[in-house]
Write a protein that binds this DNA or RNA. Structure first.
Lengths: 246, 246
DNA sequence: GAGTTTTGATGTCAGCACACATCGGTGTCA
DNA sequence: TGACACCGATGTGTGCTGACATCAAAACTC
């Protein structure tokens, strides 16, 4: 059979099905047969079954005896799973996913900054101050590549410094949005002076253990970020998940 | 061995391993052999392997050839996965998990209220106003069971009304914290008058499409909630995840 | 139309071949 | 004699397959 694969068959199967479901090629309600997937992917039952089990745990499919493997509606997918996020960013849902992430950031980062002011270890506070200064240097010099690196590390440190593992877990997704923003040219050629100052404000407020100051400065960064990005997803429809009647 | 299982062997295997890892019975770095798990659970290889694949996708374990199945450190676990959250709530990590969820709520709900004011469909706005009034009735009457139901639905509607699928996905976890709070007697016997008023403020602000008013009122609710709950997790140590150097 | 049987898919089991990281022995060279 | 590189044995995850169990949808009977 096919040889010379660098990734495992399991990984390939999960990826294949995940991208096609999240990407919309396999619509909600679509039913597949395990046996059919075997020859479609040229793999054995074990590989298909293990992949389906993983997708099941992500809420992408359900298995029904005597019926097959059914694709679940999008509102059943776990929107926080890194795989699901990556698949959405790679497909049609990119715009909506970026908006969701940006709104989540705008909610979380101010609170993370406030918590970091109360809890972060000393070394992290100092690194944060150093990075905010380096960001200003890079920004004034117009060195956008270096600025992006510093920006990513800055926000990662704030999330990590909150001491909340759920916030810290968002580092990857935030990194994704920051790089995505510059790659897609949604970034001003020079960072706004205000934004540079706000980053320094956040760092110094955290260093000074002033929670509300840190929160307010972070909120300003988020408001500006949202304002910059909002036009690019104005056309994305919003989906309202029905609330289960108890 | 045990018979009369209503759940599948796969489900049982995932549950068995998940609870023991998250609960701390299987420490970080502990290595298991697939074969050993087979006779520990009295199941076949396929069941063990499919369960391990699911746990792998949750970040709980990694498989290494020639070594076995190794338990990963807690900071590798997906803290947003419903299974992981449930296992943490059921075990040692309960306090830390409740704090994480409360902090996440305090970050998300004000922004969700703000977004709901801008986006929620008409019917949802009206139901929200109705529920806030019913909450006041139930609160004044001291009917705490009814109040809890209404409270849960209120916050679920706000999250749903935001039109952000990540926010809406937190409904389950928020419900968990609300019920947990009353079950564990951390709830005042009568709801605070202020809190009742703030809920009505949120509902009316959303109905009136006043985003900042809705956000501020929701933030007040969250501040009070955090203040009520904070004493119960004062002793929980915070964990700071190291930020990967790019 | 209610109850029963048939059917066809997933669920589970057990055995095999293969890939490959680790360990220990062997051989070479200084 | 000692240090180091090489190499094969070993064990364990990965993948494949045939067989049987289970159970719910669908067809059938009355």
């Amino acid at each position: 059979m096919l040889t010379s694969m660098s990734t495992s068959l399991h990984h390939r199967a999960v990826e294949h099905l995940g991208t096609r479901i999240v990407g919309g090629a396999l619509p909600t309600g679509h039913v597949m047969l395990a046996e059919h997937l075997e020859d479609e992917l040229n793999v054995s039952r074990s590989v298909v079954r293990e992949a389906v089990r993983v997708l099941q745990s992500l809420g992408l499919v359900e298995t029904i005896k005597r019926v097959g493997i059914r694709v679940l509606p999008a509102h059943r997918w776990n929107p926080f799973d890194p795989l699901v996020i990556r698949w959405r960013l790679a497909g049609e849902g990119r715009g909506a996913q970026l908006r969701s992430l940006a709104e989540l950031r705008s909610a979380v980062e101010p609170v993370a900054a406030e918590l970091a002011a109360g809890n972060a270890p000393e070394s992290l506070r100092q690194e944060l101050v150093g990075i905010s200064l380096a960001m200003k240097e890079a920004g004034d010099a117009g060195d956008m590549a270096r600025f992006l690196d510093l920006d990513i590390r800055f926000h990662a440190l704030v999330l990590s410094g909150s001491g909340n593992e759920m916030f810290a877990n968002l580092i990857g997704q935030v990194t994704e949005t920051l790089t995505g923003r510059t790659v897609h040219g949604l970034m001003p050629e020079h960072p706004q002076k205000q934004a540079l100052q706000w980053h320094m404000d956040v760092a110094h407020a955290i260093d000074a253990r002033d929670g509300s100051l840190a929160r307010d400065a972070a909120a300003k960064i988020m408001r500006q970020t949202i304002a910059e990005l909002a036009p690019s997803w104005d056309d994305q429809p919003r989906v309202f998940v029905p609330v289960a009647r108890n």
